[in-house]
Design a protein around this nucleic acid. Sequence first.
DNA 1: CAAAACCATGGACCTTTGTCAACGGTTTTG
DNA 2: CAAAACCGTTGACAAAGGTCCATGGTTTTG
Lengths: 130, 130
Amino acid sequence: MDLCQRFCQNQTMRIGELVKRTGLSRDTIRFYERHGLIRSEPGPEPSNSYRDYPEDLIERLAMIGQAQDAGFTIADLSLLISVFEGGADPDFDTDGFLDAKIEAVEAVIARAERFLAVLKATRSALEGPH
Amino acid sequence: MDLCQRFCQNQTMRIGELVKRTGLSRDTIRFYERHGLIRSEPGPEPSNSYRDYPEDLIERLAMIGQAQDAGFTIADLSLLISVFEGGADPDFDTDGFLDAKIEAVEAVIARAERFLAVLKATRSALEGPH
DNA sequence: CAAAACCATGGACCTTTGTCAACGGTTTTG
DNA sequence: CAAAACCGTTGACAAAGGTCCATGGTTTTG
C-alpha cells in the first residue's frame, strides 16, 4: 500500500507522521501507548508489523499535554480516558473523580497565576530602576 | 535557649515548626536546602547543631509550590532565586530569562485552562443525560 | 536493486523530585 | 532524671516520565 492510498482512503497514519505532527518523540508516543493512553491498529498489510494511528490521536495527544500542564499524571489520564470511552468500572465514582479533578486543576491554575504575578513584579522591579 | 526566648527574640524557628506551618516534610525542606532554594543559619547554641530558619521562608516555600505548579523545575527556581537575591552571574541575561519564563508560565496556564474546559464539558455531558 | 528511511520490540538507562532508615546527639517534658 | 520528642547527616531507595540502544524486519527512493 503506497502513500497515496493511505492518504486517500482513510484518516490513519504511521507513527512517523504522528511524530512530525505532534512534535512528540517516537518513544514518548510508544510510552503512552504502553500505558493505555492511546491505541493503534495493526494496519492492513500482513507483510509487516507497522501500526496505524487514527487522525484523532493528534487531538488526544494535544490534550494529554494540556492535562500534564494541569498537573495530571499518566494514571489520572488513564482513568479519565476510561471515562471518555465509557469503559469505566461501573462502581467507580466518575462524578466524584471529575469533581475532584476539576477542583484540583482550578487550584493549580490559581497557584500558577499567583506565581506569574510574582514573576511579573520581579520583571517590573528590574526594569523600573534601569 | 528555651522556647519563649526564641519566640520573643526574633523571627526564626527550628525545622519542626517550619514543617508544621508549611505542610511540607522535613525531608523536602532539607532537599530544597541542599539544592540552594532556601538557606538556614547555624543557631545560637554552641552545644548543638540545630539550625535556624527565618520566618520569611514560609512565604518562599509557598512560592516554590506555586512555581512548581507553573511548571518550574528546581533548577529554574535556583536561577530565579539568584535573580531575587541579586547574586546572579553578571553576564547572565536576567531580562531574557524572566521574559522567557513569563511566557512559558502563561502558556502553561493557557493549556491548563483549555484542559479544564474539557473536564467541565465532560462533567456536563455526564450530568446532562442523567 | 541497493541504499536510505522507516518500523516494532525489548530492555537497560536516565533525570527529577522527593522519601526512608539508621545512627548518634540534644531538648523538652512529665 | 528518664522517656519522649526533636535535630542533623549520610546514603540508599523509589516512582514518574521518558530516552536510548540493539536487533531485525519492511518500504521508499534514486
